[in-house]
């Protein structure tokens, strides 16, 4: 190589030194963090998150936000058969057939709907995941027993199951939550088990075995964390269905018997007698249910995409 040649290779040598090295930027970004990054840039996910957040805030600060007490009866003198007062000074959405402020009831109702949705989903998630882990981690006869049990639960229609639980445990808010949770259990159990079985056969699990990693660590350190994505997505989507289901059960009269706690489903049920007089009584709670369920669904669907390895760069 001539001196000229040496001189002429300066810049290219700098470039060559970088070949085979690591690309810059985004260094050390774990899958979870890159999934969140994608979510943060996703307008649909943000829409879902904002909806959910608004409802959560409303529920948390209901006493501050509600203009009136949700159970006190007002304007009783104006309520006659065939007329229920509409929007007016102090009652932006009017009152219901017993003179209770509709807006305040909707605001307080968000507490019940979200509480029932979250508690029942968490309950279903915990029980379902435990069963799923049991089946997925041990396999063999444990798997067979657990999954047949889950199949039995699954074979009973959801609503019938919920009614049975309500009847057995007596009508209360707790039994409503349990009823909804029981319906969710098989979904989570099957999902996690299937996901774990698939992950157990994957190369990295075999590799861990070949390395002499202990079985417990393989299952709980590798297989389980990698099996969670579909469960997380399902839990988000389940929040939506749980809220709808709670409303449905309340509508059927199996909801919370405590009239001091307004609930959207019960409000909807109550409103159907007055549909021809004041449809707004049904429209508003229905709208709340739809919007909050939509919020969770949007978030869940986008979470699915963000966590899906197929969308990984």
């Amino acid at each position: 190589m001539t001196a000229l040649g040496n001189y002429k290779r300066e810049r290219i040598d700098a470039l060559a030194a970088r070949a085979g090295q690591l690309p810059e930027g985004d260094a050390g970004l774990s899958l979870t963090r890159s999934a969140f990054r994608r979510l943060r840039r996703d307008p649909v996910a943000i829409t879902g998150a904002v909806i959910v957040l608004v409802f959560l805030l409303v529920a948390a600060f209901a006493p501050l936000l509600a203009p009136k007490d949700p159970v006190t009866q007002y304007l009783l003198s104006e309520i006659r058969p065939g007329t229920i007062p509409g929007s007016q000074e102090g009652f932006p959405l009017g009152v219901d057939n017993l003179g209770r402020d509709l807006l305040s009831r909707l605001i307080y109702g968000s507490r019940q709907s979200l509480l029932i949705g979250v508690v029942s989903t968490v309950l279903g998630l915990v029980v379902g995941m435990s069963l799923g882990v049991l089946a997925g981690a041990f396999g063999g006869w444990v798997d067979t027993v657990v999954m047949r049990f889950v199949d039995i639960i699954l074979s009973i229609p959801g609503l019938l199951m919920a009614i049975t639980v309500s009847v057995l445990l007596g009508q209360s808010q707790l039994s409503l939550m349990i009823a909804i949770a029981v319906v969710q259990v098989p979904i989570f159990a099957r999902l996690l088990r299937g996901s774990m079985l698939a992950q157990r056969g994957s190369d990295y699990a075999v590799a861990a075995r070949a390395l002499g990693v202990r079985k417990g660590r393989i299952v709980f350190g590798h297989v389980l964390p990698n099996s969670l994505s579909p469960v997380i997505v399902q839990a988000t989507l389940s929040l939506a269905t749980a809220i709808i289901e709670a409303a449905a059960l309340s509508y059927l009269g199996l909801g919370d018997p405590d009239i001091a706690r307004p609930e959207w489903g019960a409000m909807l049920a109550n409103a159907q007698d007055f549909l021809s007089i004041r449809p707004a009584l049904a429209v508003w709670p229905a709208l709340c249910i739809i919007v909050v369920a939509l919020g969770f669904t949007l978030l869940g669907e986008r979470l699915r995409e963000a966590l899906d390895p197929k969308f990984r760069r």
């Binding site: 050390g28 994957s202 190369d203 990295y204 075999v206 590799a207 390395l211 002499g212 990698n226």
Partner: peptide, 28 residues
């Protein structure tokens, strides 16, 4: 020990390289 065909599939996607390489050392 074993080297696998699919280099991506045989590495746990949730482990960084430090954790991947220290795992066998810790296990033994």
């Amino acid at each position: 020990q074993m080297v696998f065909q699919d280099p991506l599939g045989s590495l746990d996607p949730r482990q960084n390289v430090e954790s991947l390489l220290s795992e066998p050392l810790r296990a033994h």
